[in-house]
């Protein structure tokens, strides 16, 4: 059963790479294999298939880390803490990826590497939260303290994130696409109040996009699963010694 997911992932991700990069972007798509053109973006729009999933994953990872942290607080099972750390470590990796890919893309699309656009700021804050989480963990010796306090910090830090999601539309109208208009005549940018980007994507792009989200999520769970199993092995083998 386990093997099914891996092969599914292999196929899905391959499809996503092909589906994201092959279909040409034309002004008036005639058939299923052509993506619509957004003036100003053209080929760069393809990033949506690769950059957005990393951002989504880093948020998911944080939620998983917090969930297992709370589980640890209830049951004091050290394996829950291992799952929490491994989730957070991967979340940090994806957060860095999201920030860097976004920044590189921003350079070519909007002119400079960083703008303090609300969404850019919030991914940066998430980076800081992950950094603080690991800084806290490395400053604690006792295994029990480490697990307990990092779980609590993850809860407290999580409580402040809704403020960012709702402060965003208030602070400024950002550069990030809040709504992508397929109509080339309009240039309206409205900041969306949700973390999930609500925009109108062409149907065929949507298919590839959701395939991409699925593929990356499966990839994440696979990596997470491996990481916490390795942590468990290391822990158990050390205990025996």
């Amino acid at each position: 059963m386990r093997a099914f997911w891996k092969y599914l992932l292999l196929i899905l991700m391959t499809l996503v790479i092909l589906g994201g990069l092959i279909p040409p972007i034309v002004a008036y798509p005639k058939n299923f294999f052509e993506f619509p053109l957004i003036p100003g973006l053209e080929d760069k729009a393809r990033i949506i298939f690769f950059h957005v999933p990393t951002a989504w994953l880093t948020v998911l990872a944080y939620l998983i880390a917090m969930f297992y942290g709370i589980r640890y607080l209830k049951k004091k099972n050290i394996y829950d803490d291992m799952k929490s750390v491994s989730a957070a470590a991967l979340g940090l990796v994806f957060c860095i990826l999201a920030t860097v890919t976004g920044s590189v893309w921003a350079k070519f699309t909007w002119g400079s590497f960083w703008h303090w656009d609300p969404r850019e700021t919030s991914i940066f804050i998430l980076l800081l939260i992950y950094g603080a989480y690991f800084a806290l963990r490395s400053a604690l010796d006792s295994e029990e303290k480490r697990a307990r306090l990092s779980a609590i910090y993850s809860i407290i830090a999580f409580l402040t994130t809704p403020f960012f999601i709702f402060i965003m539309p208030r602070l400024m109208i950002g550069l990030h696409p809040g709504s992508l208009e397929i109509d080339p005549a309009t240039g309206q940018i409205r900041a969306s109040a949700n973390p999930v980007i609500k925009f109108q994507m062409a149907a065929n792009m949507r298919v590839v996009f959701f395939l991409s989200l699925t593929a990356f999520t499966i990839l994440y769970f696979w990596f997470w699963n491996l990481t916490h199993r390795i942590l468990k092995l290391e822990y158990n083998s050390q205990k025996e010694i």
Binding site: L9, L10, M13, T14, I17, L18, L21, I22
Partner: peptide
């Protein structure tokens, strides 16, 4: 398409 081939290779390698 060069990019695509490279990305595909990277992905197969990671997998």
């Amino acid at each position: 398409y060069i990019v695509m081939i490279i990305v595909l290779l990277v992905w197969f390698g990671i997998f």
